[in-house]
């Protein structure tokens, strides 16, 4: 070990960084329905998948396919009708700090400054320690909000609010982070910046992450594993390993052949699922959709 690396490790220990305990979540044959009898509606049906250790798993699916329901089940706010969800072999029965959920709507407390919002978790658990305060400073810097620490959330832009929310979740050092379309509603430019911030945060710790989205570019830019959901009732239709090297670059992801291949594969599956939802289960409509797609395929080959 030379002087340089020794020096480096000294600096590393100065910077407060959370020690990450990676966890794995297994979803086994989970079903969830709402209502009873005639009004019963099955949202998730016999759904099984694994959120692997140290990986960023992205779930993508047509809107209304039960993704948000699944998040509520993972968070422990609701219980599955059938099947089990296990975290490192232990069954999930309620909300817990081992799994932190960032919901699609901003839930920063408007009556607290950015800094106090980030420190809320540690304070609520009476862990207002020097180490946690240092961690808050570090995360503020990391998400580029040091100058906005004393501002209230309504004074921040949409992208800043999402970054503050990421920091508020990260400071609790959860074993698994679960994010439900966290960048929805941001403009295109801030969205791309958020992808970079977020993947930077992930690459730093390789904490187990589960990210739900409807945006295919977002999914491919972020994912180690891509789960594609079926139309309602929700099931995992396909799992794609996205083995693009990290750190990724925006230009690269949109140009790279492998990335494009993954995108095409994912899109074709999503397209089929969306078509099913479009035809709404009616036999006639789905026949029509099928006939139409065959005809357009034939037209394409004729052109070539």
């Amino acid at each position: 070990m030379n002087a340089n690396t020794q020096n480096q490790s000294a600096v590393m220990s100065d910077t407060p960084k959370p020690v990450v305990k990676p966890s794995e979540i297994q979803v086994k044959n989970v079903s969830k329905s709402y209502g009873a009898g005639l009004f019963e509606k099955q949202v998730i049906k016999d759904c099984s998948f694994t959120i692997e250790r140290n990986k960023l798993t992205v779930m993508i699916g047509p809107s209304g396919c039960g993704k948000s329901t699944l998040i509520r089940l993972l968070a422990g706010f609701e219980k599955p009708t059938a099947g089990t969800i296990e975290l490192d072999g232990k069954r999930i029965t309620g909300p817990g700090r081992d799994r932190l959920v960032v919901f699609q709507e901003s839930a920063l407390f408007p009556w607290m400054t950015t800094h106090d919002n980030i420190m809320y978790g540690p304070k609520a658990r009476r862990e207002n320690t020097k180490q946690n305060r240092g961690l808050a400073e570090y995360l503020l810097e990391k998400v580029g909000l040091s100058a906005f620490r004393a501002k209230y959330p309504p004074q921040l832009s949409g992208g800043m609010q999402r970054r503050a929310e990421l920091a508020r979740a990260m400071i609790n050092n959860p074993d698994v982070m679960i994010l439900d379309e966290p960048f929805r509603g941001l403009d295109c430019m801030s969205k791309e910046l958020m992808w970079e911030y977020y993947s930077g945060l992930f690459e730093e710790s390789h904490r187990t992450n589960f990210f739900v989205t409807t945006d295919i570019d977002e999914a491919i830019f972020l994912a180690d594993r891509l789960l594609i959901m079926s139309n309602i009732p929700g099931q995992v239709r396909e799992t794609i390993e996205v083995d693009l090297p990290r750190p990724r670059r925006l230009a690269f992801v949109f140009d790279d052949d492998r990335a494009i291949a993954v995108k095409m594969e994912a899109l074709s599956i999503l397209h089929k699922e969306a078509m099913k939802s479009f035809s709404g289960g009616s036999k006639a409509a789905s026949d029509f959709v099928e006939a139409y797609s065959k005809r357009s395929a034939a037209a394409e080959t004729a052109e070539q």
Binding site: R97, F103, E105, A107
Partner: peptide, 29 residues
């Protein structure tokens, strides 16, 4: 008060009483 605030607080480890004191009271202000 938006329910997401209470949910977020619970998620971050706040007890029921803490949710009341730190979310319900300032939220209703």
């Amino acid at each position: 008060i938006d329910e997401s605030y209470s949910r977020a607080a619970a998620c971050l480890g706040a007890s029921k009483w803490q949710v009341f004191r730190e979310v319900i009271v300032p939220g209703a202000m």
